[in-house]
């Protein structure tokens, strides 16, 4: 169980893993995630199930390295195992015949949006996908989404591919050209907030997937709480997807910074250890 079957770097910071997990593969629905832990001292972190295959009994996760756990995770290769995986967690995406849908994926948000986008397409919606990133190298899953999406647009900050600018600029264009019934936006908090304020005046139903800090992922700790519609919600069990126009993004952003100093410390510690190891090796 939990054996890594296949890995592939999608860009220098994003790596895909196919992991043996037959029970989760059988049960998961688009929008759900797992919690994983890679060592006895490790923390539990959430990762969206990007895809699954019931025949091979595998699930796919797509990991962007942002800190200690994700960068350690990226060192694992086919044949290694992941210590703990639990899931599928969270509510599956509510999917219906919306009509004309736009899915916006910023950075690694594309990986989180991918399974939902596919499911929305499969029940007969018209699906436009906008992928945004810093530059060309950071665009992920373009080929994969192109196999099912009706339209695919790319935006990059530096214009190295697609339109130069932010995903919201492209989204605005699309909204002005077509009648849009549904928007799903997943990416960095400022991006999701910008999409929410863009679609609100048009009255377009908009959903975002919140990336709050999680501990158990089962509704037991309340650490993932966010404020939606003025009420406390637990993102891991009530979400992770919520009505974008109801989410308090300021609070989400503040809470995501709780451990910023600790994360730095953790990474510095890791770097120091690595340097020490290197020095020791050199001495030998």
């Amino acid at each position: 169980m939990n054996k890594i079957i296949k890995t592939k770097f999608l860009n220098e910071r994003v790596k895909l893993f196919e992991i043996e997990s037959p029970l989760i593969a059988r049960k998961r629905k688009p929008g759900q995630f797992i919690m994983l832990r890679i060592s006895e001292e490790g923390e539990r972190i959430p990762m969206t199930i990007a895809d699954s295959n019931v025949e091979t009994g595998t699930i796919t996760i797509i990991v962007q390295s942002v800190g200690k756990t994700t960068s350690e995770l990226q060192k694992l290769e086919a044949g290694d195992t992941i210590l703990d995986i639990v899931g599928p967690l969270g509510k599956p995406t509510h999917i219906e015949k919306f009509g004309n849908c736009v899915i916006v994926g910023g950075g690694v948000g594309a990986a989180i949006a991918y399974p939902t986008a596919k499911a929305i397409k499969e029940i007969g919606n018209y699906v436009t996908i906008i992928l945004g990133a810093k530059s060309k190298e950071y665009i992920i899953l373009k080929d994969e989404v192109s196999t099912f999406a009706d339209e695919v647009y790319i935006t990059t900050d530096d214009g190295s591919e697609g339109m130069k600018g932010l995903v919201t600029e492209k989204l605005k264009q699309v909204i002005e050209e077509q009648k849009i019934d549904f928007v799903l936006a997943i990416g960095p908090v400022p991006m999701m907030e910008a999409v929410a304020s863009l679609t609100k005046p048009y009255g377009i139903k908009t959903v975002v997937s919140l990336n709050s800090i999680m501990l158990d992922g089962t509704g037991m700790c309340g650490g993932c709480r966010a404020v939606v519609g003025g009420k406390n919600v637990f993102v891991c069990v009530d979400g992770p997807e919520f009505d974008a126009h109801e989410v308090d993004f300021t609070i989400l952003m503040q809470r995501n910074n709780i451990y910023r100093d600790k994360e730095l410390e953790c990474n510095l510690e890791k770097q120091a250890n690595e340097m020490q190891k290197k020095m020791e090796q050199n001495n030998v």
Binding site: E41, G42, E43, K68, T69, L215, K262, C266, E269
Partner: peptide, 13 residues
């Protein structure tokens, strides 16, 4: 459970 009092040897802050 996560031994956060041993941070940073344990990763959970």
């Amino acid at each position: 459970l996560m031994k956060a009092y041993k941070f940073p040897e344990n990763d959970t802050p």
